[in-house]
Design a protein around this nucleic acid. Structure first.
Lengths: 129, 129
DNA sequence: GTTTTTGCAAAGTATTTGCAAATGG
DNA sequence: CCATTTGCAAATACTTTGCAAAAAC
């Protein structure tokens, strides 16, 4: 049955994710939440991130190099990862969802989702080049 | 100066990658190469894959869930990953490289590359649903 | 009271690295 | 010879998991 029960840890994790725009790793969230719940464990953070992601309440981002990132913004949008500082940023760009239809055209199977990641140097790191 | 020296292990790894279309993980390549060089170590496989990837002779693919994949085909193309069997397939689809310009339009930084991954069920797994 | 969630620690993957020996040029 | 590469093993990074206690309902 797996009825879902409330937990303040989970609530706090979601809350944390909703109020930041930096696409943190599980560990970054853990560090942050510990200021409120000093006894929370990293395992609990991972468990709840997986659960929230399965529920579709948050989004998990797999980017090149390093740990997975998490995003409280589930509306369709794409990301940029800076190869120098590692920052993961939202990209403000026109809708490209037609690439899904484009991929489906000659594909024999079911395409359920897709993810687009851009890489390069962010504004900050470009200046410091 | 880091002058590049020949190594049959590296040659064999590249050769292996060039003759398969299944986007293997480092470990899959390791298993295969050991039939030819039984003493090769997994570390050597990882080192050479990283080197070849840095040289631009092969491509490293980071996909959701699990180990990185490697592709001997460096011409621009996109991939599909099956959530059931884990297979990573090439997608035969129209050119979508304009999404890069689209992303650059309002972005203050440098976009050097991008990767597009589609997810769902492959033909085989769709039938068995 | 029963079920879910937690904290802790240990285990499980995936990948990298230090070092002495082997190989390449 | 000198520089690079290798094999091996240990180390690291990230994530999952077993279990008894705590919290939710």
């Amino acid at each position: 049955m797996a009825t879902l029960k409330y937990s303040r840890q989970r609530e706090s994790i979601k809350e944390n994710l909703m109020h930041r725009r930096d696409h943190p790793t599980a560990d970054m969230i853990y560090t942050d939440i510990r200021k409120i719940y000093p006894n929370i464990s990293l395992g609990t953070v991972y468990r709840n991130l997986a659960l929230l992601s399965d529920l579709g309440e948050i989004r998990k981002l797999t980017v090149d190099g390093g740990a997975d990132r998490f995003d409280g913004n589930i509306s369709p949008h794409n990301h940029f990862t800076c190869r120098r500082c590692g920052a993961v940023l939202d990209l403000d760009m026109e809708d490209i969802s037609r690439i899904k239809q484009s991929a489906e055209q000659r594909f024999h199977g079911v395409i359920e989702s897709y993810s687009v990641n851009f890489y390069g140097l962010c504004e900050n790191c470009t200046e410091k080049s």
